[in-house]
C-alpha cells in the first residue's frame, strides 16, 4: 500500500506551487520572447468578436418592419397561386387590401426608425420565413391538399395574429412611450385583420368567441378567442389530411432574440 507521510505531502504541495509560479513567470506577461524553442502543435486561431447585439427600440421596430414584409410577400404569394376563386373569390380583394395595409405599416414603421436615426429595414424576416412561412406554403401547395385556398387564408390568419402579438409584445420592451403608442396603433389593425380572417375560416357570430371541436376537443379558430391579447404561440393547421384524419400542425412564435433584426442585419 502506498503511503505518503505528512512531511512528503507538504513537500509535494510546495513543489507544485513553486512549479506553478515558474510557469506563470514564463508567460507572455513576463516579457519572455517566444523563440520557437518549445515545441507546440498548431496555432490558436484568431477570433473575430461578434458585433454588439443590443435590443434597442430601433431593433424592435426593424423586427416589426420585417414582419410586415413577411406578410406582404405571403399575400403576394397567395394572390399568385390563383386560389381565390368560387366561394373564396371575395378573399382576393381582402388579400389586396391587407397587403396594402402591411405596406403602409412597413412604411410607417420605417419612418419611425429613420426619425430616431436608425436604418430602415425593407425586406422580410429570413428566420421567420425559413421557420414558418416557407414550410407552411410547401405543405399547403402539395398536390394532395384539397384545401389550398382555405389553408392559405389560415396561414394569413396566423401571420396576422403573429404581427398583432409582436406589436403588443414590444410595447413593454420599447423605452419611448410615444413609440409604444405608435406600435400598438399599427398592432390594433393587425388584430382587426386577424378577426376578419377568422370569420372566413370559421364563419358566423356563434364562432366569434371561443368554441371547441366536438370531436377533438381542440379550440376552433375564433375572431375573439380571449379577453386579453395573447402572447402565446399560434397554432396553424394545414395540409392534406393524413391516414388518421389529422393534419400538420405548425406552431408560430413571435420573434425572439435569434430572430430580431439587429442593426447589423441588412436585406
Amino acid at each position: 500500500m502506498n503511503q505518503i507521510s505528512r512531511r512528503e505531502l507538504l513537500r509535494l504541495s510546495s513543489l507544485s506551487l513553486a512549479s506553478g509560479l515558474v510557469l506563470a513567470a514564463c508567460g507572455k506577461q513576463s516579457g519572455v520572447i517566444d523563440d520557437g524553442a518549445i515545441a507546440r502543435l498548431g496555432d490558436t486561431p484568431s477570433t473575430t468578436a461578434l458585433p454588439e447585439a443590443e435590443v434597442t427600440d430601433a431593433v424592435l421596430l426593424r423586427t416589426a418592419a420585417s414582419l410586415e414584409y413577411n406578410a406582404i410577400d405571403t399575400y403576394e404569394a397567395a394572390l399568385d397561386l390563383g386560389v381565390f376563386t368560387g366561394s373564396l373569390a371575395a378573399a382576393k380583394d381582402v388579400a389586396k387590401r391587407f397587403r396594402d395595409d402591411h405596406q403602409a405599416h412597413a412604411d410607417a414603421v420605417n419612418g419611425l426608425i429613420r426619425a430616431m436615426g436608425g436604418k430602415a429595414h425593407q425586406c422580410a424576416n429570413v428566420r421567420i420565413n425559413d421557420l414558418y412561412i416557407a414550410p407552411a406554403l410547401k405543405i399547403i401547395t402539395e398536390d394532395a391538399n384539397p384545401n389550398v385556398g382555405l389553408d392559405v387564408i389560415a396561414l394569413a390568419h396566423a401571420l396576422e395574429n403573429l404581427a398583432a402579438q409582436t406589436y403588443q409584445g414590444v410595447v413593454e420592451s420599447i423605452t419611448d412611450p410615444k413609440l409604444r403608442a405608435d406600435a400598438i396603433r399599427i398592432g390594433q389593425q393587425e388584430a382587426r385583420h386577424a378577426a376578419l380572417l377568422a370569420q372566413v375560416l370559421n364563419p358566423g357570430l356563434a364562432a366569434v368567441g371561443p368554441t371547441f371541436d366536438a370531436t377533438t376537443g381542440k379550440a376552433n379558430i375564433a375572431a375573439i378567442p380571449l379577453a386579453f391579447g395573447s402572447l402565446g404561440n399560434i397554432q396553424l393547421v394545414v395540409g392534406a389530411p393524413k391516414a388518421d384524419g389529422t393534419r400538420t400542425t405548425l406552431l408560430l412564435e413571435t420573434p425572439s432574440l435569434n430572430s430580431l433584426v439587429y442593426d447589423g442585419v441588412s436585406c
Binding site: Q168, E172, I184, R192
Partner: peptide
C-alpha cells in the same frame, strides 16, 4: 387607451392597455 399609452411611463401598464386594445380592435372589426 392608445393615447394613454403615449403618456404612461410604466411599461407594464402600457403592456396591459396594449393587451386590451388588440381585443377591443377585434370587437370593433366584428
Amino acid at each position: 387607451h392608445t393615447a394613454i399609452i403615449e403618456k404612461l411611463s410604466s411599461a407594464k401598464m402600457a403592456a396591459l392597455l396594449a393587451s386590451v386594445i388588440t381585443v377591443e380592435a377585434r370587437h370593433a372589426a366584428i
